[in-house]
């Protein structure tokens, strides 16, 4: 993948407040995820929004989240999961691969590997057919996604030949994710994290 596309991807993703970091190996990605979790504000006790004046019913869900620091990494290859687990364990962070439905109040970090990247718009393509993956990329407060640079394509048109086979499998749930969850529905003021993650971190993995 050309340097030009990497630069374009970075520029476009950063324009929608994604945090981009080049990495040389998956080990760096595991360390990064654990580090982000340890240093994240919300890893202290409260989930985003729970500090505000919310209804009693809504705050019941806030209570449901234990003081655990949780990283969810569904659908990770077994060897990758084992490595991530080691890193998490050492830092005292809980790692889960499934059962996300019992964490709907929220988790700290979602960790995933993207299937494709689209440089033109700074988008990640994730086959989210696994319900746990769908949920971990939505209910996590910070979404950390590894994009192997070999999977970076210039445009959605250029990725079409790879998107189609994914969509031809049934069932399939495919997602283009660009930046964090956002809204401008109140007075057109941009606000991040209305339903999904508050932050999207993209780790560009040199795998060529």
């Amino acid at each position: 993948m050309s340097q030009e596309h990497i630069e374009l991807f970075t520029k476009k993703a950063e324009a929608v407040s994604a945090i981009i970091k080049p990495i040389g190996s998956m080990d760096e990605a595991y360390a990064y995820a654990v580090d982000v979790c340890l240093n994240k504000d919300a890893c202290q006790l409260l989930l985003s929004g729970c500090e505000n004046a919310i209804s009693d019913e809504a705050s019941e869900l806030c209570v449901a989240k234990a003081a655990d620091k949780v990283i969810a990494a569904p659908k990770l290859a077994d060897d990758q999961y084992a490595e991530l687990a080691k890193a998490a364990d050492k830092a005292g962070v809980k790692l889960i691969a499934d059962g996300l439905r019992s964490h709907l109040a929220g988790i700290d970090i979602g960790f995933a590997v993207a299937d494709l990247g689209l440089a033109e718009t700074g988008s990640l393509v994730l086959d989210s057919s696994s319900e746990d993956l769908r949920l971990s990329t939505m209910v996590s407060e910070i979404n950390v996604v590894v994009l192997p640079l070999s999977k970076l394509r210039a445009t959605s048109y250029e990725a079409e030949a790879e998107l189609l086979p994914m969509m031809q499998k049934s069932p399939n749930y495919l997602a283009f994710i660009t930046g964090a969850s956002r809204t401008a529905d109140i007075e057109r003021v941009l606000a991040i994290g209305v339903h999904g993650p508050l932050e999207l971190h993209i780790l560009l993995l040199e795998d060529a």
């Binding site: 929608v16 399939n172 749930y173 495919l174 660009t178 930046g179």
Partner: peptide, 11 residues
Amino acid sequence: QITSYVTWITG
């Protein structure tokens, strides 16, 4: 350029 999420549901 694009929205935060574009979702494709098949089946």
